[in-house]
């Protein structure tokens, strides 16, 4: 179990960095920003922030999908933050203060997930564009959320064991993993998710920052944009 965890984490980190490195190295030869667009860097930061935190373009595209997508992502954020408690000893106060909201988020997240799944299934155009891995990713996250809720609500696991195990992993002094089946399933699903992450569409999390239609300034006439591979 320890080895699997390390492999997954290493693949995640290396894979993520490699992908981002490729995106950094491939040049953007032309100004292709989608206008109207900001002219200054602070403006670009504001635009990117509105995309990253508020999903502005998605909001303009489809309100219901925006609601589902945004609730999903914000819940995920709180869930991840809440789980940081298993990696710190002592647990910082700010993480502790997020426990309640994180737990609620753990329940709430099922709603948008089921909505996103039903949407792919039942809406004709969405079902047309969905492939097997799109469904798989949703099932995987639903599985993680579901096992998480089970552990929290119904079949309690020994959190002291879990925390010792996680701290062991983190400090590179691995211990024997807890024997609890539910925990192992939850943990393995998470490992699989992060292992699959860098190879999949989940990289949209990094991709948005490299999107020239969003991160460029609209100043083509004022400042000459250079194409690195052009021979002049």
């Amino acid at each position: 179990m320890n080895i699997i965890a390390y492999i997954a984490v290493v693949i995640f980190i290396v894979g993520f960095i490699c992908k981002v490195r490729v995106w950094t190295k491939v040049p953007a030869p032309l100004k292709i920003v989608t206008t109207p667009a900001p002219i200054t860097y602070p403006g670009v930061i504001l635009r990117m922030a509105s995309e990253v935190f508020l999903f502005r373009s998605l909001f303009r595209g489809n309100k219901l999908l925006w609601l589902g997508g945004w609730i999903f992502h914000i819940s995920l954020l709180f869930i991840v933050l809440r789980h940081l408690r298993y990696f710190f000893y002592p647990v910082p106060a700010w993480i502790m203060s997020l426990q309640t909201i994180g737990i609620y988020a753990g329940y709430i997240i099922l709603l948008p997930l089921i909505y996103l799944l039903l949407r792919r299934w039942t809406v004709e155009i969405n079902s047309y564009i969905s492939n097997a891995m799109d469904y798989f990713t949703l099932f995987l996250i639903i599985g993680i959320a579901f096992t998480g809720i089970l552990m929290k609500q119904y079949i309690r696991v020994d959190l002291v064991d879990v925390k010792a195990f996680m701290l062991g992993l983190l400090t590179l002094h691995p211990t024997i993993s807890p024997g609890d089946i539910l925990f192992l399933v939850h943990f393995l699903l998470v490992l699989f998710l992060i292992l699959y992450f860098p190879f999949s569409k989940l990289m949209h999390a990094g991709g948005i920052f490299f999107s020239p239609t969003r991160n460029q300034r609209d100043n083509a006439r004022e400042i000459r944009h250079i194409t690195p591979w052009s021979n002049i």
């Binding site: 491939v26 040049p27 949407r119 155009i125 799109d134 569409k201 948005i208 490299f210 020239p212």
Partner: peptide, 21 residues
Amino acid sequence: LKKYRSLKVYLDTCVRCGSCA
């Protein structure tokens, strides 16, 4: 794919959410 960041990033990041559909 080595010349256009747009192409590379856009091929990698689509989640098929359907907002454009």
